[in-house]
Amino acid sequence: MSRGGGAAARLGRRALRVCALPAGLVALWWAAAASSRSYYLPAPDAVAVTFAEVWFSERILADALPSVVRLLAGFALAAVLGVALGTAIGSSPRLRAFTEPVLEFWRAVPPPVLVPLLILLAGIDDAMKVLVIVSGCVWPILLNTVEGVRAVDPVLADTCRSYRISGFTRLRTLVLRSASPQIMAGLRQALSIAIILMVISEMFASSSGLGFTIVQFQRGFAIPEMWSGIVLLGLLGLALSLAFQRVERSVLDWYHGLRAATRGE
């Protein structure tokens, strides 16, 4: 067999491995829908047809896009806030001792219960929804950044001092880079929290968004439409997680190499 043929076969096997379980689950869904005949459990082909009808339209701009924009805005704001505060707190034992009890308290408050409060404070528009996302996402980023910044290697810190590397260069090349594995772990957790909070915030007083639309469909007994919204949310989460993986791989390239090297390849 030629080399090209071998590569194609490998690619085929890989595609099979990736798709086998999803295909199996869809088949199971199919069988369950066919045997139950329940109104609330439409078959996957019906959902697929509805999906195309519902989402390949201006609805994707009117409902999905605002959701994604709010999600990304909230996530980005939480990232900036979490990394900035986390770096400050992680660098100063005094500040950490001072803020720790308050941080533990706020972290323990489930973010969805802040929605009614934030409606009062920030109204029912986009600002409220972004704030809900920020209020939930900031904690894993903040706490992981604190841990990462605290764990900066003392020998490397001494190296920086002896070469008089200080200020912004020190922050950028020493502190943030050596904390980056923890920061990325925090960002990854925050991303999944952001999706959940996006949906929840839209289920409260809202006039657009995926969460709002899914609840509307459910109340109107548009069951295949409701299912199509859930599928879209799943796909959105998958796309975000794949994008995040790509970024992480390029940012933490050195870290994975270092770990492989210390494990002895």
Binding site: V155, L156, R164, I165, L174, Y255
Partner: peptide
Amino acid sequence: MAVVFQEYGRSLFAWLSVADNVALPLKE
């Protein structure tokens, strides 16, 4: 003054290339 530490693995920046490790103090 320059210092060379015993723990070479911990005194180099793992995220910088060899040349960048050498260049960083000069840049600063």
